[in-house]
Design a protein around this nucleic acid. Sequence first.
DNA 1: ATTAATCAATATTTCAAAAATAAATTATAA
DNA 2: TTATAATTTATTTTTGAAATATTGATTAAT
Lengths: 217, 217
Amino acid sequence: MDTIGSSTYKKIKRDIIFGELKPASKLKLDELKKNYPVSLSTIRETLNRLSSEGFVIAEEQRGFFVSPFSKEDLIEIANLRILLESYALNLSLKNGDTDWEGNLVAAHHKLSLIENKMDNKNKDIVESWKKYDWEFHLACIAACGSKNLISLHSNLFDRYLRYQIILLQFRGDEAIDEHNQIYNFSLKRDADSAIKFLKVHIEKGLEHALALFKEQT
Amino acid sequence: MDTIGSSTYKKIKRDIIFGELKPASKLKLDELKKNYPVSLSTIRETLNRLSSEGFVIAEEQRGFFVSPFSKEDLIEIANLRILLESYALNLSLKNGDTDWEGNLVAAHHKLSLIENKMDNKNKDIVESWKKYDWEFHLACIAACGSKNLISLHSNLFDRYLRYQIILLQFRGDEAIDEHNQIYNFSLKRDADSAIKFLKVHIEKGLEHALALFKEQT
DNA sequence: ATTAATCAATATTTCAAAAATAAATTATAA
DNA sequence: TTATAATTTATTTTTGAAATATTGATTAAT
């Protein structure tokens, strides 16, 4: 079971990542109260958490805003994700045991299933694809041995994902292939190659997003 | 000027870092209200922010606790700080302009002044040493060009500092020398050597803290 | 016409008090 | 002793209102 607080946290965070609350838009407390039927204090607690996590900007005495989009921000987040995820992947491939390997196989299998039936822009599927995509990347680095590293990475993953989802729904075959490469080299414990394709994976998504950046705003 | 919210945030965070609120201790809302004379909602907002930042643990329906100490946690944080600060330092040494260099010289000078008159365990001085130590490390990486990187690093710096301050007040001449090495190689734009001494700097502090770990709890 | 100052409207911030809900403790019965 | 029920305690959530700051519009002054 969830408390009201934690479930509205999840809802608002989700709505920011999926663009239902648009980048840079003002988060008026009264209006939020209509869409998320909880009390003001609960909403303020949620927004305070989200601002610590970079999804919301809190301007003193002026209220809350969804974090805006910018090229620079996107590039920074992509590079930080590469830095942390590469580091974690390297550790994970050194330490991963049988359980880790089993989970990775399962996560990759589930992701493959959904990626193959994804004929773009099906809203329902995008949301569950997000879930399996995340679980695959998490499974890769799960054996890195550092809870703090995983939690920092999780935050960057979500912030990167927000750009990906809002700017472009899904990148298609290219991304599927990259996932396969990361997967195969991970099972071989070939850290250098796995990291190489992880970088390609994130950088390709970055390029895609940057190209679309001006079109959408 | 500060809002009541942001100034209690600073106070509570400071008290956690300096150990006035002890690791793993329960943060009862009523008691906090006595020590920090603000309303319950303000306190809860603060604790929610601090829990997103890793200083506080929020257990659903069971309240808030100061994040506990553990060897594993300390090691993880030290390694993450090395990872992020090395990365940032490397970028900064590539990009730093005249202003950056001037600020670094100033920051190092101020730090030197205070480090030389630090005859250990003077409580007032520890607090301003923390400030100048932080400003020196920040000055080093200031030209890295990534706001997100600096803000992630700032969080890890504070969490690492909490262990350092609570476990050992000050490490003395050794640390001063390390600061000087980082400084000198930074001015020479010798990233490899600067990073090498940065690692030594953090790892020595880590060893020190780990050695003392059992004595204090 | 532009700038400054004033006033009203709007929104955020903060507080206080109480109802709802869950956890922890104690007392009771098997 | 164990399990269950009742009590106490603490957190979570809501409500409503007061204090404070910002915004926008109106008016006055340069």
